[in-house]
């Protein structure tokens, strides 16, 4: 009886906390709800401040399909292609590097790692112009390579894989070597399977970053047929008169894949962003 009373007293004391959290949750979710509602309304209704669902979804969709020379589906396809290629290549390159730095480490490699970490100091905006020159000289503008190359190898990802390689026992590698497994086989057959959760976290974070990338694609993907989804929605809303309903539907299209990834893999997402901080 007293226990029950105690518990209800604790909950009563938490009421201000609940109210505060409800307000914060509402503020966090409302703009996203509004985006969905606006996508079903005419531009006029959106401007009037309607927050209920409307019946203009199909009209907005028809307008969206014709926007920016009808590049909705190609932009969507490009974004998927670039992000998936980016994720696969990044995971491979950074995981072997992190694995190599941790499990084969010696003085030379540790020093090299220290040098690579310096790349964290280099902001994207400072390398943008020289990299543009490099990419255009290599005739890679408007290709998937232009999109992915600067983002494949990052100190953050290498560090994340390195930190998480610490729990992989070197004794097992020794044993595998005695059994005659090559170094690459040890990596693929033994390391990769036990590190699945790290790969999942790294994949989620890389995919999200690639999908959301904006400044660099804007520099190298000048062709409308090569543009990504964020570029597409930026284009449809940059005119003098903006069709809010259509724009919000575009924004919804651009957000759906990352939202789905977020809801399915929220744990991995959280692990990914806190990744190398352990």
């Amino acid at each position: 009886m007293t226990k029950k009373k105690n518990r209800s007293m604790i909950q009563r004391r938490l009421i201000p906390t609940y109210i505060f959290l409800i307000i914060c949750s509402f503020i966090s979710v409302f703009p996203l709800y509004w985006m969905i509602a606006a996508a079903t309304n005419s531009s006029l209704n959106v401007a009037r401040g309607s927050i209920a669902f409307g019946n203009q979804l199909m009209v907005n969709f028809a307008n969206l399909k014709n926007a920016v020379q009808g590049t909705l589906w190609s932009s969507m396809g490009n974004s998927f292609l670039y992000s998936i290629v980016q994720t696969v290549v990044t995971l491979f390159v950074c995981s072997i590097a992190g694995y190599g730095f941790e499990l084969y480490h010696d003085k030379g490699k540790d020093r090299l790692f220290g040098i690579l970490l310096l790349a964290m100091m280099v902001p994207a905006v400072a390398t943008m112009v020289p990299l543009y020159g490099l990419v255009s000289k290599a005739k890679l503008l408007n290709t998937v390579w232009a999109f992915i190359l600067p983002g494949i190898s990052t100190p953050f990802m290498i560090m994340m894989f390195r930190q998480n390689s610490r729990n992989f026992p070197p004794d097992i590698m020794e044993a595998a070597r005695i059994d005659g497994l090559s170094e690459w086989k040890i990596f693929f057959k033994m390391y990769v399977p036990v590190q699945k959760s790290i790969y999942a976290a790294a994949a989620v974070i890389t995919f999200m970053n690639a999908w959301n990338a904006y400044m660099w694609p804007k520099v190298v993907m000048s062709d409308n047929r090569a543009q990504t989804m964020p570029m597409f929605i930026a284009n449809i809303s940059s005119g003098y008169t903006v069709d809010y309903g259509m724009t919000m539907l575009g924004v919804l299209f651009c957000s759906l894949p990352t939202m789905i990834v977020f809801f399915i893999l929220q744990k991995q997402f959280a692990e990914g962003i806190t990744g190398s901080v352990k």
């Binding site: 985006m35 959301n212 964020p230 651009c254 957000s255 977020f262």
Partner: peptide
Amino acid sequence: LPCATSLVS
């Protein structure tokens, strides 16, 4: 949840 939206979005 806001983290799931792109910066442009």
